[in-house]
Design a protein around this nucleic acid. Sequence first.
RNA 1: CGGGACGUGGCGCAGUUUGGCAGCGCGCAUCGUUCGGGACGAUGAGGUCGGAGGUUCAAAUCCUCUCGCCCCGACCA
Length: 573
Amino acid sequence: MLWSRAFIPTLRDDPADAEAVSHRLLVRGGFIRRLMAGSWSMLPLGMRVAKKIQDIIREEIDAIGGQEMLLPVVHPAEIWKKTGRWDDVEGILVKLKDRRDADMLLAMTHEEIFTTVATELTSYRQLPQLWYHLQTKFRDEPRPKGGLLRVREFTMKDSYSFDIDPAGLDVQFQRHYEAYGRIFARLGMDAIPVHASSGWMGGKESVEFMVEAAAGEDEIAFCPSCRYAANTEKATSTLPTVTDPTADAAPQRFPTPGIRTIAALAGFADFAAADRQIKTLVYMIAGQPALLLLRGDHELMEQKAIDGLGTWDVRPAHDEEIVAALGAHAGSLGAVGVSGVRIVADPALHGRCGMVTGANEDDWHLRDVSVERDIAVDTWLDLRLVAAGEGCPVCGEPLEVKRTIEVGHIFKLGTKFSEALGAAVLDEQGEQRVIWMGSYGIGVGRNLATVVEASHDDKGIVWPTSIAPYEVVVTVVKGDDAPSVAAAEHIYSALQEGGIDTLLDDRDERPGVKFADAELIGIPYRVTIGPRGLAEGVVEVVRRRDGTVESLDPDAAVAHLMETVRRERTLGK
RNA sequence: CGGGACGUGGCGCAGUUUGGCAGCGCGCAUCGUUCGGGACGAUGAGGUCGGAGGUUCAAAUCCUCUCGCCCCGACCA
């Protein structure tokens, strides 16, 4: 490709509304342009990268037996009503009507439709199956952000496995786990697999693949010594054992005028350190008030309550609801002597005594509370958000908490969809068996952006050769110097014929502009051709990722690049 | 959905407080001089100031409504 003919609208300045690095660089580099919030056009450069990412995904999914298909983006409501998701995922699901007034929706994922296709499976002999497609999804996200990192319309590779039994599902799940590892490695990313909450996919077990990045939206707990890793939605940790003063004393009230927070109370009385307080949160769970109890210095992870209590209908109670339930305002609440309201307590409170908590009367607290003795706990449930420095639940070493981007997610769905839609086969005994399913997603655009988050410098993007829009850019320093032009064209066509994706910068621009643009768009190798080098019979080969320069004669440069690029293509470098 | 900010040529911004000819830098076009790290000079094109309504002799500026968009918190590939 001649740069002078290419549509690569680079920007000298950062777009004002771009915050995330990838957002900034992809817009500046002319890879993408925004149409509306959460919808982006892929320009030629962006499309070339996206295609290469898709090819890598195809290769790896094909390698574990995947068969590519293409399913529709607009679905009839009927099928989604059968699985219950027409009503369950209200909000991000876009619903529409056709001319006959029939209810339809924009695909936010494709479990329903793949399962519908799978109803044609009739015999255990046809299993296992592994199907996938690369298709548009639309989710009306409440808050798109960060360029391609969180959008409403996007392309996702989603695959679906179909097996006769859970053991078969385990095998396909494991194969995806490994294939995903290879995919992210080839994209040049260090992805950490973590146990996750399954959200509205409703599966039993799921693993997210996370890449560390400042622009990330998720936090994971990670153990550097044994590599335990889990989303903080699920992560657990060990705590140093606390020894309480043996307290035979009964709870006693004490006045705490104006004290409303854990911190204030800790500063108010020396026996009320944060880890000796009981934090009492009032939540509405499925419409009923409930008390969630945590140690004073611990934070609630709401998702754990949602998962553990088995309902999505979980929210903090409003002031009126709190007063109605306990007779006092937030800041003076406690669970001592409370009955008729469900009490859920975090295990960190187990066996604790000599504790301080609210008295359910404004400006009064209780001390010498013994959890076991004084509080009628209905349910013990891990509710606590893991903090950095706490012990790894596996090996006990201190945990790190990292900010990450979710680049892939694999689910064991079980039989939820096959049951609802009637996907079943006959087994060897002639018995009907519902199919066991798994579902496995990778967002193409998000991965593209995440690579940029993970691989850039102050000059621009540093693409790994495996997905670079062009592998080599041939830069002519002096456009009106005949020998330079001849050498450039020679090298350019030799590389092209050798199957290297090459861009020839033949623009009538000053060298500084050409260098800056090449670096901004992140081409892994640049061949610089100018009269200065040519006088000595050499051109320069510059490596983007570290700036190293090699002076070679033109044919040696071609041979060197062919060898290097071909080798690096298959690696995540 | 709650909180904050913003909307003025392609990009980045000033002008709004205190109403009075719509400006600057970059980019773009033409010509000339330049040419190994974002050159210089000259000339020029390009804007319903997000939209609607209102106040006024006069609105980018004041008022009302509305749309869009970004950032921070609850959701996901």
